[in-house]
């Protein structure tokens, strides 16, 4: 349902993504792995059109995204959870969710504040608190919940486990598996191989903006030299 081909993205003059191409199929959870600076965040931003690729195409359900502004991409049903979480600290939790709300989408599970509070019980008790009162893990939960309020057809998670306590990471893995069970495809940018293996079907490894590996985790384990070369384990 998502297909990148020949994507080249820049920051100023720095060439970050080089002819990157991969696809994500319906119902699939895919991990995008690589070291710091490999281009994972840029890949996610190039899908959202927060970074405009100079060359190449990003096609989502037959629609070319590179010509669209960011808000149109989101409207098409791509949900984006940024690395820095970027919750609105001055808004209450309920209001944060309200910003993410979009009309129900045919054929997709429709979230409400209530169903999200069931998924993230920690948030429910604090729904009238301001965002700034939350811990790092709770902010991550809120950021995911806020994006789910848009009833996405594809979820982009950028390093959700970064800086989060291990017990919360575990909780998050369960959440992602639940979402997967609902049939929601996920692109997960990660450095935590253990976490990635827990939740995803397939791994894509990039390094210096180039794709180095695309296959199942079983295939990856059969080639330890790839893991050693491109991932810091």
């Amino acid at each position: 349902m998502l297909e990148l081909s020949g994507v080249n993205s820049f920051y100023g003059k720095a060439h970050i993504l080089r002819d990157l191409g991969f696809s994500i199929n319906a119902g699939e959870v895919v991990s995008l792995l690589g070291r710091n600076g490999a281009g994972k965040t840029t890949t996610v931003k190039s899908i959202m059109q927060l970074v405009k690729p100079e060359k190449g195409s990003v096609i989502f359900d037959g629609v070319e995204l590179t010509r669209l502004p960011t808000h149109r991409v989101a409207k098409l049903g791509i949900g984006y959870v940024p690395e820095e979480r970027r919750i609105f600290t001055d808004l209450t939790i309920s209001e944060n969710l309200e910003v993410g709300r979009q009309p129900p989408r045919p054929g997709v599970y429709s979230w409400t504040q209530q169903t999200l509070f069931d998924l993230f019980p920690n948030l429910a008790e604090r729904r009238s608190n301001r965002g700034k009162a939350l811990s790092g893990g709770e902010q991550q939960m809120l950021s995911i919940a806020r994006t789910l309020m848009g009833n996405p057809r594809l979820l982009l998670l950028d390093e959700p486990s970064e800086g989060i306590a291990p017990v919360i990471v575990e909780q998050m893995a369960h959440t992602i598996l639940k979402l997967k069970a609902e049939g929601l495809p996920v692109l997960l940018s990660e450095q935590n191989l253990h976490f990635a293996r827990m939740v995803s079907d397939r791994a894509i490894i990039i390094e210096g903006g180039l794709k180095k590996f695309d296959g199942t985790f079983a295939e990856l384990e059969a080639q330890p030299e790839i893991r050693d070369a491109y991932l810091s384990v």
């Binding site: 984006y80 609105f88 910003v99």
Partner: peptide
């Protein structure tokens, strides 16, 4: 709510589908 959110982080508001 949208106005206050945009006051804080416009790009994120756009990424959530608000023009």
């Amino acid at each position: 709510v949208l106005v206050r959110a945009a006051t804080q982080d416009r790009e994120m508001v756009a990424a959530l589908g608000v023009n």
